[in-house]
């Protein structure tokens, strides 16, 4: 069976609509009959990525490949890149502004949550060029 693919543009200007792509994916996975823990892990990981793209990278794109045995989420942006990936992976480390924190984000849990809820998280990043995240959730 060929993979089902979904593409979303994540709007970097609109903080209030952040999460729309994740909510849409959640709905699609539910319609496709995936187990609820798989749906939960995919939507949490994708939401964290979406929020990161809005906070740090002025938006980007999200592509989701759905196959019977795994779901692959690819998030790509042309933001500032991550200078120190190891540091960014640390729980509690954040470069978010105070304004972002007052909205309930910037806890430094984004990348750690993505790692925790997926089977693999691959980060390709270049400072000044952008970041591409590939996450796989096994069914």
């Amino acid at each position: 069976m060929a993979a089902l693919t979904f593409h979303y543009d994540v709007d970097g200007q609109d903080f209030s609509s952040a999460g729309e792509a994740s909510v849409a994916v959640k709905k699609k996975l539910r319609q496709l009959g995936f187990p609820s823990d798989v749906i939960r892990r995919c939507s949490i990981a994708m939401y964290e990525g979406e929020i990161n793209m809005v906070i740090h990278a002025n938006g980007g794109t999200a592509d989701v490949l759905v196959e019977p045995e795994k779901i692959t989420i690819i998030l790509e942006d042309h933001g500032p890149g991550i200078p120190d990936v190891e540091l960014a992976m640390k729980e509690g480390y954040s470069t978010s502004t105070e304004a972002i924190r007052t909205m309930g984000f910037g806890a430094g849990m984004g990348l750690p949550n993505m790692k925790r809820y997926t089977e693999s998280l691959e980060i390709e990043t270049e400072v000044g060029v952008g970041t591409k995240l590939t996450m796989v959730v096994k069914v």
């Binding site: 952040a18 729309e20 994740s22 609820s36 939960r40 929020i51 984000f105 849990m109 925790r116």
Partner: peptide, 26 residues
């Protein structure tokens, strides 16, 4: 802290918070 809630709240929970922006709904 929304990321913390994302990682720890369970399906079926009553979620208690003082946050009231759009992201709470998401």
């Amino acid at each position: 802290l929304l990321s913390w809630v994302m990682g720890n709240a369970q399906s079926g929970d009553a979620w208690i918070t003082i946050m009231s922006n759009d992201n709470v709904v998401a």
